[in-house]
């Protein structure tokens, strides 16, 4: 059961979003985050919402999964919009004691909740449609220019790859250690939260020891396969820009234009 946990929840598929170059997808995600926060009028917000909706519908991932990802943050959305409701200045439309709600506050609450929801949807779309390996690969390639500032880009990407590789292995191991400790009479279910955390010590210590042993062995295996950092290293899979990637970029440009026009010609409400 614990082995089925998929990090980042990649859903295999073959839609246009899946086939888009992961680098382009990451850049588009960043662009859309900027778009979402730079939409100041209702028209702009509407345009960006529609744009996100189109991507989601094209993504070849069931809408249920998107709703599931929203479920987690629904509380955050409610709290932040509630707080924003009382934040606005201007004539109150509702007053009770020291609490006053203004029209500006209502607008602000709407904007904030729509923005958070869009943010979650668009980033879920990236993780749903991009495999973890593609993601780390794309991050490595996108960060390449940072080498100028002596940032070890290749090493960071390698660490991410290895971390992703070992998530299921270590989960499985945790499962085994827990069973082993239970077999020796360890009680992990009863008691309050503090007691439960304390009960995890006999699981965590062997897990850590084993993780270090694994790291040592892995380092040796990597050296056996001539690993010597990123220098002179080639990759089997090279990323190439395709027609569909250009479509993505043009799409983002059109959305940008729409938002800019929406911001200029319609009154900003926030």
């Amino acid at each position: 059961m614990i082995r089925d946990v998929a990090l980042g929840q990649y859903i295999p598929g073959n839609g246009i979003v899946h086939r888009t170059d992961p680098r382009v997808k990451i850049l588009l995600l960043i662009a859309f985050i900027v778009f979402i926060f730079c939409s100041f009028s209702f028209v702009s917000l509407g345009i960006v919402t529609a744009a996100v909706a189109v991507i989601i519908l094209l993504s070849d991932v069931s809408l249920k999964l998107y709703l599931k990802s929203l479920k987690v943050i629904i509380v955050i959305v409610l709290i932040t919009s509630l707080l924003n409701l009382f934040y606005g200045t201007g004539d109150p439309i509702f007053k009770w004691g020291f609490i006053s709600v203004t029209m500006a506050g209502v607008y602000r609450a709407i904007f904030v909740s729509v923005r958070i929801i869009l943010l979650i949807l668009i980033s879920s779309c990236l993780t749903f449609t991009t495999s973890p390996t593609d993601l780390t690969d794309a991050i490595e390639r996108l960060m390449k220019p940072l080498k100028v500032f002596h940032i070890k880009v290749h090493e960071i990407a390698m660490m991410m790859t290895i971390a992703l590789r070992f998530v299921p292995t270590l989960l499985e191991e945790t499962d085994k250690i827990m069973s082993a400790q239970k077999a020796r009479g360890a009680d992990m279910e009863s008691g309050g939260i503090i007691k439960k955390i304390k009960a995890m010590t006999p699981v965590l210590i062997p897990l850590f020891v084993s993780a270090f042993r694994r790291a040592y062995e892995l380092a040796m295996a990597m050296e056996c396969r001539c690993y010597h950092g990123g220098q002179g290293r080639t990759r089997m899979k090279t990323l190439h820009m395709k027609g569909s990637d250009c479509v993505g970029i043009i799409y983002a440009a059109v959305v940008l234009a729409g938002i800019v026009l929406g911001n200029i010609f319609f009154t900003a409400v926030i």
Binding site: T133, T161, I162, L218, A221, R233, T234, R235, M236
Partner: peptide
């Protein structure tokens, strides 16, 4: 065997050695 595999996809793991040797894709 668990501690010798580097990548999360089998073919990418097998490619690890030749990649380190700088062989063309």
């Amino acid at each position: 065997p668990d501690n010798q595999l580097v990548a999360s996809v089998i073919e990418e793991d097998v490619a690890f050695g030749p990649e380190n040797l700088g062989i063309p894709p």
